[in-house]
Design a protein around this nucleic acid. Structure first.
Lengths: 133, 133
DNA sequence: ATAAACCCTGACACCAGTGTCAGGGTCAAG
DNA sequence: CTTGACCCTGACACTGGTGTCAGGGTTTAT
């Protein structure tokens, strides 16, 4: 199977397949002419990679346990749980930060609306101040 | 005031001040020797930039209304509200996506723990499958 | 034999802000 | 006059996955 055929079967671009290879996720054989030769199992491998990418893992993280989960059930791969835990913690940190940002934005928006309510006549904006004055 | 002095007063690195200048946020005068010369007002300007960066705005977005808010109250700058609204919507989208990711992770973690509970004997991992086999 | 469709590698671009280095000028205190 | 501290510009790196192009080789069907 050539890279183009694998791309068609999995919906992953040729570009991305070559990137996964560089990341050590899927390393095909080579034909005499230099073309990549993928085994039929490669389809399942790529689908697995897609699954973990959709879980928010990076290719580098996936590289750490992909070989294991291709041969075993996820539960047998000791690398997986700690990774999921730290990834989940990281996601929750990000949500926390974004929530704080959103709260700040809401407060500012509310403050603006109050000011506009207090001074309904919309004053026109004067000329801008330039730092180099 | 030189760029180093402004950096010391604001806690913003020299590198970042030059970046803000390239983004059009703060444009100082130049001395005869080419050194940047900042007015005392530059401190306030940089503090304002910091405030908006902390709100999650980009330098490009800040550039669109910075001149206005330096001269007026925020409420008088028509550019601000729509920007806040779209930024807030964007943040909420990101939170939504992260929450979905986290939910998926939690479900996988739970599934793993159930499997481990059902099959307590920890089988050792066999040799890895290599794609190029 | 030629054209179309495929393959190869290497490289730049994107996003955003910052660190850091190279290579060179300036200024102030000793 | 020399030294150290400061300033200048330009450039690369980082993050992470993908698009895209250049420049070139291969294969397949006509």
């Amino acid at each position: 199977m050539t890279i183009g055929e694998l791309a068609a079967k999995t919906g992953v671009s040729v570009r991305s397949l070559r990137y996964y290879e560089r990341q050590g996720l899927i390393v095909p054989l080579r034909r005499a002419n230099g073309y990549r030769e993928y085994s039929p199992l490669a389809v399942e491998t790529v689908e697995t990679i897609k699954l973990y990418l959709n879980l928010g893992l990076t290719t580098e993280e996936i590289a750490g346990f992909l070989h294991c989960v291709l041969k075993n059930k996820e539960a047998f791969c000791a690398e997986v749980m700690p990774l999921y835990k730290s990834k989940l913690a990281q996601i929750e940190r990000q949500i926390q930060e974004l929530s704080q940002l959103g709260e700040n934005l809401r407060q500012r928006m509310q403050a603006i609306q109050q000011e506009q309510g207090e001074i309904p006549q919309q004053r026109e904006v004067p000329e801008q101040r330039i730092e180099s004055e």
